[in-house]
Amino acid sequence: MVVRVGRVVARVAVLAGAGLAVLLAGLPVAAPVWAHSRLLGTDPADGTTVTSVLPAVTLTFNEVVRADLSTVLVERAADHTGYGDGPAQVVDHELRQPVRPLRSGDYRVAWRAISVDGHPVQGEFRFTVALPPDREPAAATPDKVRTPVAGGGGPATWWWAAGAVVALVAVAAGLIRVRRRPVGTR
């Protein structure tokens, strides 16, 4: 009986180790500190009033973020209409969202950025546009499609989940295999 239990424990340990190796294979290797992106500031700043034409909203981070997985939603607070003009762009540590001409009013910016290590960070801020009457743009047709900002994790989250599933399946398969074997071959 002791020999059988020892073999089962050894097999489970080997399978769990294999699952852990698969899990760790998906982790970023070049991240020496595992620090995540952090928002340092925005332009316009939270709670400020803009009195000139604003071509873009800019978010500055402590490190580079991924443009292909990051989103910035600029919407008029009164009617939740989006004013983004094309995809967000990343230059150095800045995530820049071009906007259609903003009329005077209150605006909300909801953002979600993905660090190069796959960790998502998100937040929101608000600002007001108060243009002089002679600088007020003509009423434009804003972008009515809202881009979702909140949601699940980035690529690193999926690697962890996939690795955990593989590890659990490997352990379960090992236990089933040991139980199904005839008594004389254990």
Rank of each mutant, 00 (worst) to 15 (best):
A88V: 12
P28S: 04
T147Y: 06
A78L: 02
P28Y: 05
V165M: 10
V14K: 00
R146Y: 01
V116K: 05
V29S: 14
R108T: 13
V50K: 04
W34S: 12
S104V: 04
P44E: 06
A67T: 08
W158T: 00
G151R: 11
G153D: 00
P120L: 01
E124Y: 02
A35K: 12
A162L: 15
T141S: 06
E63N: 09
A45D: 01
T51N: 08
I114Y: 03
P87G: 12
S115C: 15
Y107E: 08
P98T: 12
P182W: 02
V8Y: 00
A138H: 02
L59T: 04
P44V: 03
P120E: 03
M1G: 06
A164M: 12
V90H: 13
R103C: 00
P132L: 11
T58Q: 14
P155Y: 14
T141N: 10
G184S: 13
G123E: 01
Y107K: 10
D106S: 15
V2C: 00
V129Q: 11
A67K: 13
L69I: 00
V72H: 03
P98R: 07
P32S: 08
V9D: 01
V121I: 15
R135Q: 14
D68Q: 14
T51Q: 10
D134M: 01
A170E: 04
A161I: 15
P148W: 04
V149L: 07
A30G: 13
L59I: 15
V116T: 15
E63L: 05
H119W: 13
W159Q: 06
